[in-house]
């Protein structure tokens, strides 16, 4: 069945330009299309008309690379739960629907063009400590360190984060707490992550604030929109680690003669 869909899309030439919503009408949208394929069709049409096609980020179109994401009627990735926008299909919409598409909005996510934003702030949070410092070649045998299956499974749950930024876009404070907590939890739940656990919590949280993300006030919007089901208890774990580290880690530094 084919539908008529009206799109209002945020168009903005570059980071500093003034943006605005522009209305487009698609008279013949197949229910089997993905949302991004509908935008492909629109872009082909715009190109033929000599207009500038709509810029949006995408790559794998399988819901795993984390490239895609924008707001559909105020919701990151649109209405279907646990689904990135590349996996959202038009059969979930109705003939005549009117949709407003906007980029993820946050001070730490400047708009690059149209629906595309710069999320390199998330990379810098990882660079501040989202790893185990182990050089290539210095590992012991993989089975030398038994890991409780439940811990490993919970670490995997947290590690499933795709870094799309939907959590930030949905948060009234534009906080990156769910993203940061997912990485802190992933490594805190594993024995490999213990040596740097305090340092990691301190540095990653500090970097999050440095980038201009807000504080978490437990609104819970992030969990509701996360396409990978990352849960709020990760934030609780991050806060616990941060608090503990804020006391013990600084004391250690002081004992060693101060920073």
């Amino acid at each position: 069945m084919n539908m008529r869909i009206v799109l209002h899309i945020w168009r903005q030439r570059n980071r500093t330009a003034q943006g605005q919503m522009v209305r487009y009408e698609l008279p013949n949208v197949s229910e089997h299309m993905s949302f991004l394929e509908m935008l492909d069709v629109l872009n082909e049409e715009l190109t033929r008309k000599g207009e500038d096609p709509v810029t949006f980020e995408h790559d794998c179109r399988e819901g795993i690379c984390g490239c895609c994401g924008f707001m559909i009627n105020g919701v990151p990735h649109g209405p279907q739960r646990l689904t990135t926008v590349c996996q959202l299909h038009m059969r979930h919409f109705r003939d005549g629907d009117e949709l407003w598409l906007e980029p993820f909005r946050a001070a730490a996510f400047p708009v690059v063009k149209d629906l595309m934003v710069d999320r390199s702030s998330l990379d810098r949070i990882i660079a501040a400590g989202g790893y185990v410092s182990v050089n290539t070649g210095s590992a012991v045998d993989g089975n030398a360190l038994p890991i409780i299956k439940q811990c490993s499974d919970m670490a995997m749950d947290a590690a499933s984060c795709i870094g799309c930024g939907a959590c930030v876009a949905s948060c009234p404070n534009a906080s990156a707490s769910l993203f940061t907590a997912a990485k802190i939890s992933h490594l805190a739940l594993l024995p490999q992550g213990q040596a740097e656990r305090d340092r990691r919590a301190i540095r990653m949280v500090a970097q999050m604030l440095e980038e201009g993300f807000g504080y978490c006030t437990n609104a819970g919007e992030c969990e509701a929109v996360c396409p990978k089901g990352i849960t709020l208890d990760n934030i609780a774990r991050m806060n616990r680690d941060f608090l503990k580290a804020a006391i013990t880690y600084l004391e250690e530094t002081a004992a060693a003669g101060g920073a």
């Binding site: 790893y131 185990v132 995997m156 490594l187 490999q192």
Partner: peptide, 11 residues
């Protein structure tokens, strides 16, 4: 495998 486990890959 050893290297990835050491990095914290949750196999």
């Amino acid at each position: 495998i050893d290297q990835c486990v050491a990095q914290g890959v949750p196999f």
